[in-house]
Design a binder for these strands. Sequence first.
DNA 1: AGCACGCCGACT
DNA 2: GTCGGCGTGCTC
Length: 738
Amino acid sequence: MTSTIVNVALNRPLFKEFAYVINKEISDSHIGCRVKVNFANSTMIGVITKVGVKNNSSIKLKEATLIDEQSFITDDVIKMLEFGSNYYQYPLGQCFNVALPKLLREGGAFSYEKIPALQLCCNIDGEILKKIKSDDQKRILDLLKTGPIQRKELRERGFLSSTENALIKKKLVEIINIEKKENEAFSTENILKETPPQANTEQLSAIYTVQKNSDFKVFLINGITGSGKTEVYLRIIEDVLKKGKSVLVLVPEISLTPQTFDRFYRRFNVPVSSVHSALSDRERLDSYIDMATGNSGILIGTRTAVFTPIKNLGLIVIDEEHDSSFKQNDTFRYHARTLAIMRAKINNCPVILGSATPSLETLFNCYKGLYSRIDLKYRAGGASYPDFELIDLTKEPVTEGLNKGLSQTLEDRIGEETAKGDQVLLFLNRRGYAHHLVCHLCGHVFTCPNCDNILTVHKTNHRLQCHICDTIFTAPEKCPVCENTQLFEQGFGTEQVNDYLKDRYPDVGIERIDRDSVTTKNQLEIRLNRVRDGKSLIMLGTQMLAKGHDFPNVTMVAMLDIDSSLFCDDFRAMENTAQLLTQVAGRAGRGTKKGKVIIQTHHIDNELINDLINPQCSYIDIANKLLETRKKLSLPPYSYQAFILCNSSIRNKAFNFLSNLSDKIKTFKDNYSNLVITPVMSDKMEKIQNRFHFHILVTCTDRNELRKFLTQVRNTVEEQTVPNDIRFAIEVDPIAMY
DNA sequence: AGCACGCCGACT
DNA sequence: GTCGGCGTGCTC
């Protein structure tokens, strides 16, 4: 009888794998296969990490049942996860858990089921088209002319399922189930579906620079907004596809809009797959199989897409590489950019980082010569860069508008633009009606009972909401302390500005775009379409509006409250503000009309603001200045940081646990060079959802020393058992401060 | 993380 | 007497 011993990684917070006997002749090629095992009296699914280990413990090994005949997790993904586990101090078994789609995690089969699609069920002639009024219905019929399309794809391209259903009802289209087979490699003939537009010389040179290299190399494409970065990606992707290789495209959650998908679906004949939050578990698995078996040539996805096994991976593109949504802030606290670069290195293929506002980390790596930077300085299609104008709020009269964030000067400008029929975009990064509610008599401020946070006033449904834990309270009639009924709303949010704008410009359509007013993708589409169709001239929104979307007729962009993002104790505040403003400014004047950007501030002399509005001073110039400051203060990227995090529902328990750990750390921290640790401190917001949060910040100039130190910290924690009700985590390379 | 084991308090 | 609270320790 042959019996092989394998190591299995399990979804448990344990930094070791467990040995099992497997009743089958298997080899190293089975690394990555799932097995069913009994672990501590329960049945679990684990992943084989080693084959043919010796049983050097005296325990009688249990038996593992093989689930997969062959591993679908590619070697590069396994190596990337092993790196990630070490680098981010997170157990390998739990890393696998994050990396696998839910259905596979739970033991489901690695195979397709029937995939719902639409196909035409009669000839569509002019007569039929005449009877159809809906543009979307016509567009669907047009797309279906070339063959059936998956319902998932139609959804991604912005069509409503109700539009599809209307066509089904008219018996013009029918639902069919596509039966896909695994391992149907995409054809490298006729890659293109449409002829690409003419690229300009700058774009061509960027394309050429990347194309001539097919080994591991990191490129930063630093292209100003409107310079046609996406076109550059598409050309390079085309070239990779022609070689029969596949491409991974990582994008921030926010940019998964129909336009993004359309760009890829329209351009390539090659199947395109996707990973994003709007997919069902089954659809996620389908995309996973598409890529692992080489059925699709392109995967577009958010940060989790970095874990998808890809047959013949030839290129990774990370669009908007500075975007903070590539960082996961719970469980496996990885940065998708870091893992993607490691994956490309393992896989020996190039990586393209694209951004108009690269992160300081990435720029620093360019200066060190680790990445090569390609600049795109001209706006494709000849659109000119906008003019900047500051409004000095200290010189503005105190009007009703000013209390709602709009100075007299800005109001006049909005009036002028909209009178011409031009569109304006107003940006305010604060949702809700009012910042907080205060008692006029005793000064009591309404706060969240579960968090150390003030409650935001929302007028719709008459409620107060905590933006930390999302708890909603009905707005009170009186002060709970002094019973006074005069309660004042202080500070303004998008909801209030929206109300004011409606009164002030009653004849102009206004679209408010934030998390409260836009709860589904479709709602966002409807609003954006009203803007594109010119039905609405004013857009008011939060972050949601800052990125990705193209509005050719927007001639003016205004930042209502830049001051609040400027004065913040986070050392990244300046970088984030510079990125935000540059991105927002990029929304103006993308069409033929020249755009302007208006910034309201009480701090007219602020250096950063003046740099931002100075046409002689580019984002890179500002970033260079910020890098200088970071260097002087020895802050990242000139040093590496990690947080040791701990929280508990009992305040003392969390504090004592970390203090204890801190004492132990002090006994060995001097074995590591250039390491600085802070005392145990409360988080900025100590209480969140009734749990008390504490941290220790570790800073080190050497990445490797830091890693070794953190491993010892983690081992120290493992020696004792973490008490009940204590949550403990290590966060490496944090981008948010605690 | 789960789950079992074990050692003390407040019940029928 | 016993049910169950959760602190402690282990999982191939």
